[in-house]
Design a protein around this nucleic acid. Structure first.
Lengths: 391, 391
DNA sequence: TCCAATTTGTCAAGGACATAGACAAATTGC
DNA sequence: GCAATTTGTCTATGTCCTTGACAAATTGGA
């Protein structure tokens, strides 16, 4: 017998959504132009814009002039009306940033990861957020959302991190819940490679395509898949866990099988082992190895070529399964042009329709960017989205 | 300066959609109950139901009784108000069916494929449709949609069939356009394995999961992927073309590479060749080979085991990329329990999180079912969908 | 300098769609 | 036969949107 509060809000919501989207798409714009673009009446636009201005979402910024007729007041998004945090948790560094409704970075920082892991990381996160909020001229309670990128396989439903070899203690707690309770802000937890893919989709190489894969090659290997314009997570959140691809070794070998056949064959450890196997003696890190390659050392060239060959086969397999238009590579190995050029050479020889290959536009900031992209998208949805009630 | 016709239909559309969905979900139902379930007022429901009844979408079917209070008139979907056709084009047979708005099959038939291909197939299709319409007690012009499943790779945008080895002449014409023009009905063309996956999603093993793959193993091999509940097509419509998986041979071998490395290794031709290689002499078809296996012939067992081993590795690769909860197998080879049991044995030895394996519920009718599922879904969308205008 | 043309934005009237609550009609059970 | 219950319509009211008239503001040319 309770009376519902909002009775016919749906029409106004749709109108509001149309107005907001138009302003987002056009930047500074007058009410008359909004009316023309949306097809809604001038009257409706005036009403909606008044409400949005009262609530702080839009602000008047200037006037038109130079054309015949009365000057129009132009409006634009009040970007500061929605601020969100993106955090990229790595095994050695934590990067974090605050962005506004338009995706502008208003504060950014980076610290070393607390090696004790677990709850100590939650403390680091909240300290970082308070510090960033101060730098952005606001306070942490004004922030609407936190997106946290982490290595490991995450349960899509609960956000629980099931497998995370490189960070101690975060698979023991429900990171999303604990962190969200601590800060009193909604928290989204997502795999870091998935976030990197989202970053490329948002403002990187994936901006004009809706079917691509981000392949991270470094100490570990992973993949983020954008298909039909959205992220693919799979049934258990393990989509893109190409460490387990049966390529580069015997799939039935119990050793490689638990560690991941493909990761054992192309990770940085394997690459250095291969280099030593070819007789190389001048590299203890991947950076050394590429330096040796550029100095013309044949054992380095052989190690890189063999890695490229295996990665090309993996991309062929991914291409057969997913048919991406583009594969973006990243990570400490995958962002090296020397390797990527070799991959480009092998690929047409092992698959009839090779996808384009590009190196990540954002380097090691890709996951941070992806977190911001998700945060902006989510804020728009929460604030202006039109949700039909489920029956 | 043209005045738009419909001014504020959106609220009514949403209400109508809610009513239709409620009736779909509940079967025979009274207006009072619809009001309770949707949360809309009795008045609104009466108005909407009146309109829907006038337009033929709903029909009164009876009355409640036995409970205190006035008896209610119950309504249900008038299933015959929307009829659509599903056609499964195979290299030897064409299967076709008409289904109604509820997905009931009201007419079904099967003929041999005209070996001349091309336009002769279009003639076959239109004859089939006229015949089915007659059997269903209607005429072809009353049909709202045709879904055509075909082998080959289809361009997702145009519906053009780019590669179709087993059917002559259909890659030379724009099948969708020609067929649609001939019948004056909208036509959807889709890859047959993708349709089989949709069929399993609609009423088969995929009904309770939104991440699975349908793997077809027969003369050729193919895969249909359902991820996040929707079909994955890829950038060029070639997602799931696992013929080209670099498994079962050297990915860089120019021969296997053009024919498809994986298909060359596990198709029915390869399986029989393998059987002969192991010394088998009693099988010229796959059916013979399985008969030999069931008679205890060791060369048949070896051929099947080797095929199962390769398929298990392929499923491991697919699992690493897509993380499906379930893999459904079909096709003349893939629907044999003897093979699938062997696959089930190999799988846990080559991947740490093996997906469940099931044999297709519909056998060779899976694509036909999938076409009906798509047709029903599409009819619902067209007839009752709520579309927000794009700005 | 003044006026026509143009554009912006508000006002007022009217229509579609929703809700709430009163009430008539129909049915069950005592 | 009557109270209780349920269905479905009627009436009144409110929100949101549209249309068309009109005032306000600006440009450019006579």
């Amino acid at each position: 017998m309770t009376s519902s509060v909002a009775q016919t809000p749906i029409a106004r919501k749709i109108s509001t959504n149309a107005v907001i989207r138009t302003v987002f798409a056009n930047g500074s714009i007058s009410r008359a132009d909004i009316a023309k673009l949306t097809g809604l009446s001038k009257q409706t636009i005036s009403d909606v814009v008044r409400d949005l201005e009262d609530d702080g979402w839009l602000k008047p910024v200037g006037q038109t002039d130079g054309r015949p007729g009365r000057n129009a007041i132009t409006y634009e998004i009040n970007a500061r009306a929605g601020l969100a945090v993106s955090i990229d948790l790595g095994s050695t560094k934590i990067a974090a940033a605050i962005c506004d409704l338009l995706g502008n970075v208003v504060a950014e920082t980076k610290v070393s990861t607390d090696p004790r892991g677990g709850m100590h990381l939650v403390n680091q996160f909240s300290d970082l957020i308070v510090e960033l909020a101060f730098a952005a001229g606001t306070t942490a309670d004004k922030l609407r959302l936190v997106v946290l990128g982490s290595p490991g396989v995450l349960d899509p439903a609960t956000g629980h991190i099931n497998v995370a070899p490189s960070i101690p203690g975060i698979d023991a707690i429900n990171l999303r819940q604990v962190f969200s309770d601590r800060m009193a802000i909604p928290v989204i937890v997502e795999n870091d490679v998935n976030l990197a893919a989202q970053g490329e989709r948002w403002r990187g190489h994936g901006i004009e395509t809706s079917n691509f894969a981000f392949v991270a090659l470094g100490t570990g290997v992973g993949m983020g898949i954008i298909a039909n314009g959205t992220l693919l997570r799979g049934a258990r959140g393990a989509a893109g866990e190409i460490a387990y691809l049966p390529i580069g070794g015997d799939a039935f070998d119990p050793g490689g099988f638990t560690l991941g056949t493909f990761e054992s064959a192309v990770g940085s450890v394997a690459m250095l082992r291969r280099y030593v196997g070819f007789g190389g003696r001048n590299a203890s890190t991947v950076a050394d190895l590429f330096a040796a390659f550029n100095a013309g050392e044949t054992s380095a060239a052989a190690a890189i070529e063999e890695t490229a060959r295996l990665v090309a086969v993996a991309i062929a397999a991914i291409g057969a399964a997913l048919d991406p238009e583009l594969v973006i590579t990243g990570g400490s190995i995958g962002s090296r042009p020397e390797l990527v050029n070799a991959i480009r050479g092998f690929l047409p020889r092992c698959t009839p329709y090779p996808p384009r290959i590009e190196i990540s536009r954002f380097g090691n900031r890709a996951a941070l960017m992806g977190g911001m992209g998700i945060a902006v998208e989510r804020m728009h949805d929460d604030l202006f989205g039109v949700k039909l009630r489920e029956v």
